[in-house]
């Protein structure tokens, strides 16, 4: 008798498990934003559940009829679980939604400012998305175009891998903005990189006397490729004389740094900008 009960229990468990995990017939793959239907999974009224990456949908359905899935219910790529429950029995199925056609681009360009004549200094990373901001993982060809300040554009096509492609670029020897454009189909994005002067090169100062004070000013400060160093860049003047040491940090204005200093006796003057040093002057004071 006990054996009979045990076998019955085993059978009922197997049956229940089989019914519980009954497979719902769902399409294996769906494109994001495309409506479709799931075949009816029984009879009578039941509850339909759809669990997706951004969805938790529940509605009453007639299990005998097809269940309509609206386009807006499958806009996000990923794994979806569809479940129908009628009475105590539930059926479930899984399907994957993949991205629609490429429609948007994410273009990340670094840095936004770059010193001139710097190899591989600019990087551009392109992410390809569909209309619903899903990353398009199927390889796509992206056209990258660089338009320098002077000269003609240069274009190149790159294939994405896992929805991403990237490129490294040299900065031009001339300062000014460079445009970087990524395009796929109708979608395009443009970024601008400011190419700025590099460190000061051949920093030179000269001195003159005005109303008993020594006036020191630099020549127009340029980098090694001849670009003007931007205004506001600090130039440090240091004077050492009988009174001790005097330092003044002066910003470049109109390309020149200028300072007035009193001098007593023999004075030694140096100039620097950041880690770049310039010429030195020896002057006699007391004029």
């Amino acid at each position: 008798m006990r054996a009979l009960i045990s076998v019955s229990l085993l059978l009922s468990f197997v049956l229940t498990t089989a019914l519980w995990s009954a497979e719902l017939k769902v399409p294996p793959q769906v494109t994001a934003g495309n409506a479709f239907s799931i075949s009816g999974a029984g009879s009578g009224q039941g509850t339909f559940y759809l669990i997706g990456p951004a969805e938790s949908i529940k509605r009453q359905v007639d299990l005998a009829n097809d269940i309509q899935i609206q386009s807006e219910e499958v806009e996000h790529v990923g794994r979806y679980t569809a479940i129908t429950c009628g009475g105590d029995q539930c059926s479930s199925g899984h399907f994957y939604v993949h991205a629609a056609a490429p429609d948007r681009l994410g273009l990340i360009v670094h840095p936004s400012r770059v010193p001139v004549s710097n190899p591989n200094a600019i990087s551009a990373v392109v992410f390809v998305f569909d209309d619903f901001h899903n990353l398009v993982l199927v390889p796509q060809s992206v056209k990258l175009t660089v338009t320098p300040t002077a000269g003609s554009s240069i274009s190149e096509s790159r294939n994405t891998q896992n929805g991403v492609t990237w490129v490294r670029l040299n900065s031009a020897p001339k300062g000014g903005p460079a445009k970087i454009e990524a395009a796929i189909g109708k979608a395009s994005e443009i970024r601008v990189v400011q190419q700025v002067a590099s460190d000061a090169c051949n920093l030179q100062m000269k001195s003159s006397w005005m109303s008993g004070k020594l006036v020191i000013e630099t020549n127009p400060v340029r980098d090694c490729t001849g670009n003007f160093v931007p205004d506001g860049t600090i130039v440090s003047f240091t004077k050492t004389d009988a009174d001790g040491k005097t330092t003044v940090d002066v910003p470049l204005k109109k390309g020149i740094a200028k300072v007035e200093m009193p001098v007593s006796g023999q004075a030694h003057i140096t100039v620097a900008s950041g880690v770049v040093t310039g010429n030195e002057l020896n002057v006699s004071g007391g004029r």
Partner: peptide
């Protein structure tokens, strides 16, 4: 996406 999913869960009573 997750915020949307939780908003749906609050409406439907489903949770994971």
């Amino acid at each position: 996406n997750l915020v949307q999913k939780i908003a749906d869960q609050q409406k439907t009573g489903i949770h994971l």
